[in-house]
Amino acid sequence: MAGEILDNRGRGDAHWHWPAVHPEGRKFALITAAASFVTALLAWETLAWPLAFLTLGVLAFFRDPERVVPQGDNLIVSPADGLVSLIAQVEPPKELIVDDGSGSAGLTAGPVTRISIFMSVFDVHINRAPIGGTVRRVVYIPGKFMNADLDKASDENERQHVLVERPDGLMVGFTQIAGLIARRIVPFVKPGDLVAGGQRVGLIRFGSRVDVYLPAGTDAKVVLGQTVVAGETVLAETGTQKLIEGVSQ
């Protein structure tokens, strides 16, 4: 199905299938499966069964389902699965603003809308590009491992900033943030790479958060408390400002 065009008039072929497991997770599943097998041979059933269930949990955590990415030059799609836990007007991280010596400009200083998406251990943890274009920056920052649901996690936790520039010059930055359990941010891209909107660009192991910095003059099309899907949910349309309200029910 990957690369197939589907539309709102029924074109394409859609059917459910078991999601693939990302290669990053296969080694962990192999280790737990081997441990379960060995303990079963030794008749240590009190360990064998929990290890078997842990293997299934690892496979589920690293699942990598296909996504149907909305197409449109003005669309910004969610880079992560999870809960919209914070929406605020903030200054973008300095790492995405200051001159990094690469010859490519960063984001313009000034308050913009930041959408924070919290990923629990039950969410898919593959992160995707919010727009198509050229990766201009990938900046890793070591830090703490406090609860990723806290606002200050954006400034204090281990994190990785990514900046993508569209062909027309518009830039969107996002930050992968480690959490209490997460201990590694794994990038799939580097500066200079070309990415499509919704393309896989990295993952964070075992619970975390992603912050998205919308361009100036752009409001979120999602509301606080909404569950979003990486590569599919439209977070914003560039240049659009409108109050959107939701009702919890």
Results as ranks from 00 to 15, higher is better:
F118M: 10
A35T: 12
R184K: 10
P130T: 00
G197H: 03
L54T: 06
D219L: 07
G132Q: 02
V162R: 11
A129M: 06
T134M: 09
A182C: 05
T55Y: 06
L150Y: 15
T227P: 01
P65W: 00
P93A: 12
W49I: 12
V58H: 05
G202K: 04
L54D: 03
D100C: 08
R67V: 14
K242R: 14
V90I: 11
P187F: 00
F118T: 11
L83M: 07
S104P: 01
A129C: 07
G101P: 03
G225T: 01
V229Q: 07
R11A: 15
V21A: 12
G10K: 14
T227N: 09
G106Q: 01
V212L: 02
F37M: 10
I244L: 13
L170M: 14
V186P: 02
S116C: 07
L170E: 15
L150P: 03
A52R: 09
I97C: 10
M171Y: 04
V139H: 13
V90H: 12
G239H: 10
F206Y: 04
R209L: 04
L51I: 07
E165C: 09
G72H: 00
V69P: 02
D100K: 10
R26P: 13
G133H: 05
D193E: 11
Y213E: 03
T227C: 01
A88L: 11
R200T: 06
V112K: 02
A29F: 06
E95W: 02
D193V: 09
P111K: 13
D73C: 05
V228T: 03
V98F: 13
V201K: 00
V98R: 15
L86H: 14
S154A: 15
M1L: 10
A35W: 04
T32N: 10
W18L: 15
F61N: 01
S248W: 14
P93D: 12
V58D: 08
P215G: 04
R159S: 12
F61A: 00
L96K: 04
P79Y: 02
A14N: 10
F206K: 09
E245F: 11
E4S: 08
G169P: 06
S120A: 05
I204T: 04
R128M: 04
L203D: 10
A129D: 02
V189T: 11
A43F: 01
G217C: 11
F61T: 00
